[in-house]
Every structure is written in C-alpha cells, then in structure tokens.
C-alpha cells in the first residue's frame, strides 16, 4: 500500500476535491506528470486536459481547464478555472458543445482577437477531455 498524501482541486466556484490519495497525474504544460508522495516542491501550469488520481487501485478522472499546480512534499494544490468529475459529465451535451465550439472558433480571428480565440480553444480542449473520460 502506497503512502497517501493530500490533494486539493480548487476552482473559483469552490473546492471540487479534497482527499488523501496515492498518486496524482496532471496535464502539465511541459507534458503530463505524475506525483507520488515526497515529490520535490514544484510550481507549474496545467493545460486543459484530464487530471486523475489513484485511490484503492482505481483511477478517478476529472476534465480540467487551464490553471496551475503547486506540488509540496506532502500535498498537491491544483487551481484551475473549471473541473468536471467523470461521473457528472453528460456525453451527449459535451458532444453538442464541441460541435458548437468548433463552429465558433472558425469565426474568430486568432490574430485580431487572441484572447477570445484562446478562450474558445481552451473550451474545446476541456470539452474533448470531457468526452474522452465520460462513460
């Protein structure tokens, strides 16, 4: 049995997850990374994607938006703009959203309106992550 450490997943709407887990895998900006207890303290960005943690030999997954992650010796704090647990995702809804967002992004000029473009492309990535983990 691996040793456990605390992980907190926080969004502006509230604390989504606050638990003792064995391992966390997060989508870092420099690539996906896994964290076990005793990891070197680290600060990095999270890009939209899938974040999962290991508990009782089972991975629990979340679709997360952009944000950052602070790794401490005995805790991981993840701050993202949005987070959706796999069992709360409506796959049909997500598929619809994806279609709508992909249409929207075609209408936005990436050069003229970079922030808007980035916002939509982030939403697309989150929605894709949602679809990939929905059951």
């Amino acid at each position: 049995m691996a040793q456990k450490f605390k992980v907190e997943l926080v969004t502006p709407k509230g604390v989504v997850l606050d638990k003792e887990v064995e391992e966390v895998i997060a989508p870092g900006i420099m690539g996906e990374f896994g964290v076990l207890i005793g990891h070197t303290p680290m600060l990095t960005f999270i890009k939209p994607g899938v974040l999962s943690y290991l508990e009782n030999d089972r991975f629990v997954k979340y679709a997360v938006g952009a944000g950052f992650c602070e790794v401490l010796k005995d805790a991981v704090n993840v701050l993202v703009v949005e987070a959706h647990p796999a069992d709360e995702i409506d796959k049909n809804q997500a598929n619809e959203d994806l279609v709508r967002l992909e249409k929207e992004i075609l209408e936005v000029n990436a050069v003229e309106n970079p922030t808007e473009y980035e916002r939509i492309s982030d939403s697309i990535k989150v929605t894709r992550a949602k679809i990939s983990i929905a059951n």
Binding site: G28, I29, M30, T40, P41, M42, L43, T44, F45, F68, E70, L72
Partner: peptide
C-alpha cells in the same frame, strides 16, 4: 517564500499568474 522547482521559468510563471 517557498523553495520550488519552477517549470517553466519563474518569469514565465509570474507573467501568467
């Protein structure tokens, strides 16, 4: 402050944060 490993660099993190 805390001692961290920064990934990417400190400046880039600061810029975004």
């Amino acid at each position: 402050r805390r001692a961290y490993l920064y990934e990417p660099s400190e400046e880039e993190l600061l810029n975004a944060l």
